[in-house]
Structure formats: C-alpha cells, structure tokens
C-alpha cells in the first residue's frame, strides 16, 4: 500500500482519443518510439513510484517532482507486445481533459511486466478503497 519505486526512462508522450485498447496503445507506443528515434534525444531517467493513490514521477538526476498522476486519472496500463521492454499508461490531463499515453523504457521485459502488475494491483486496491468510501 505504501507504494513501490522503479527506475525507468521516460521515452515520451502522445495524445490518444480512447482511454484504452490494445491496438490504440500499440500504435501510441509505436509513435512515441519513432519520435524518440527521430529526435535522437536520450530518454530522461526517472523514478516512478506506484501506489493506490497514483503514479508519482521524479527526475532521477535532479530529484525534482515531475508529475503526480492521480489513480482516478489513469485509465489503462500495458506492456507493449512489440516493444516488450516498454511500459505505458494512458491518463487524462486534468487541465484540458485530453488523453495522454506515456511510455517508459525499462531495463528488461521482466521489469516492464513488474511495473504493469504493480500498477494493476494499485488499481485493485484503489477500487476496494473506493467501494468502502462510497
């Protein structure tokens, strides 16, 4: 419940028009990978902390808080089939309501799977807490 931390690299973000879907997320990850390659920018090293409250992102070099994504804003998470070291989630931007797909490069496929499974557990715990609160 207190959360788990993973060291990943943020590869990028792209807008999507649906909150979930295998084809949709695969296409989004493909776009992010292509853009990152085109730009040739090294993916930013981040620390991703997962808990039933949501996902918190810190810049690993400066320890600066990058983003605090509430669990209620995250619609979906996945490990991409083609890029199996890539973990991605789709979240709604609170400012403008747009749906963003964020993709992260993990050191190994197992790490990507561990992150996805941990986020899924956070979804489940958050749902149980939400039902109690209701």
């Amino acid at each position: 419940v207190e959360g788990m931390t993973f060291n990943l690299r943020h590869l990028g973000m792209t807008l999507v028009d649906q909150p979930k879907g295998e084809e949709l997320s695969a296409a989004a990850v493909k776009r992010i990978v292509a853009t990152a390659k085109a730009i040739g920018k090294k993916p930013k090293k981040v620390t991703l902390k997962v808990s039933p409250r949501g996902i918190v992102l810190y810049d690993r070099l400066t320890n600066k808080l990058l983003e605090n994504v509430s669990i209620y804003r995250i619609s979906y998470c996945t490990v991409d089939k083609q890029h199996d070291k890539m973990f991605a989630y789709i979240a709604q931007n609170t400012l403008n309501g747009t749906l963003e797909c964020h993709a992260y490069l993990c050191s190994k496929r197992k790490v990507a799977q561990a992150v996805a499974l941990t986020v899924a557990q956070a979804f489940t715990v958050a749902f149980e807490l939400w039902q109690v609160a209701k």
């Binding site: 295998e22 209620y72 804003r73 619609s75 979906y76 998470c77 996945t78 709604q92 979804f123 749902f127």
Partner: peptide
C-alpha cells in the same frame, strides 16, 4: 508470441469527493 499485458482501471474517473 507473448500476448500483451494490459489492465483497465476500475476507478478511472471515479472520485470519492463528488
């Protein structure tokens, strides 16, 4: 081939405040 791992969030857009 390994199938994708994906999870939908049951609390997406559900907030306790409203």
């Amino acid at each position: 081939n390994t199938n994708t791992i994906h999870f939908d969030n049951p609390v997406y857009q559900k907030t306790t405040e409203d």
